[in-house]
């Protein structure tokens, strides 16, 4: 098993947010987590990545069989875990390209020629302009550019597990399709395990996937239902009131 969460309890500033989460994700699987605002989706993503502000009270997070709770954020990233930020922070004075080079270099020697070629290919695939990589990281990026820049990073870093926190929010229909296709390729071709956190079902239509794809409903810090596309359609029709 690539990734497993066992009985995870976590709080933020003393408030219980995650109240017993269990989840298994294997390579090449896509898991979608849906839930209303405040249900704990982003807290779960932060807990997996080890970001500050989330305090783990109980449980385990296993990656390739090893508990990663004692690891720093960069150690988790180097193992192959990637978190797509919902609102990536804007950084003055560091170009997107320098940031990408530093991220790639952190995983070993950087083959500049190969890196630049991959970057060019991925930018073409996602429809990202060449100009954006010279700009300061995330500074003045539009909503769409921010989402695409995060997916571009994912494609270049080739993680084993990606946690995508609302990759579709604020995007137009075409951009959702482009991003959906990119995620699908990583799951299908690279066997990347993937957790997509979303409010909307529309990205599901853009994910061209075979194999195991599960939708989980998170409510008040607990998973209350899981299923396939029919579950998403039910949420679309009835909202979350039926799961209370």
């Amino acid at each position: 098993m690539l990734f497993e969460i066992k009985g995870l309890h976590a709080d933020i500033e003393g408030k219980d947010v995650l109240k017993g989460i269990d989840l298994k994700v294997d390579s090449g699987e896509l898991h979608v987590i849906m839930g209303p605002n405040g249900s704990g989706k982003t807290t779960l993503a932060k807990a997996i990545m080890g970001l500050s502000g989330v305090s783990i009270k109980k449980g385990e997070i296993l990656f390739e069989g090893n508990n990663i709770l004692g690891l720093s954020i960069d150690e988790r990233a180097k193992l192959g875990i990637f978190l797509q930020y919902q609102n990536p922070v804007e950084i003055e004075g560091v170009s997107f390209l320098s940031f990408l080079s530093a991220a790639k270099s952190s995983r070993g020697d950087l083959n500049t020629k190969e890196f630049m070629q991959n970057l060019k290919d991925e930018m073409t695939e996602l429809g990202v302009s060449e100009e954006i990589i010279r700009r300061n990281l995330n500074v003045g990026f539009s909503g769409g550019e921010k989402k695409k820049s995060e997916i571009l990073q994912m494609n270049l870093l080739k993680p084993k597990l990606a946690i995508l926190d609302e990759p579709d929010s604020g995007l137009d229909v075409d951009a959702v399709k482009t991003i959906g296709k990119s995620i699908s390729n990583a799951v299908k071709n690279d066997k990347m395990g993937c957790i997509v956190i979303t409010h909307y079902t529309r990205i599901l239509g853009s994910l061209e996937l075979e194999g195991k794809n599960t939708i989980h409903v998170l409510l008040n810090g607990k998973f209350v239902a899981e299923g396939g596309k029919d579950l998403a359609e039910k949420i679309e029709r009835e909202g979350y009131s039926g799961f209370q």
Binding site: I73, F82, L83, P88, A102, A103, S106
Partner: peptide
């Protein structure tokens, strides 16, 4: 933390 989440 954003930089660290990319392995830096």
């Amino acid at each position: 933390e954003y930089f660290m989440s990319r392995g830096i």
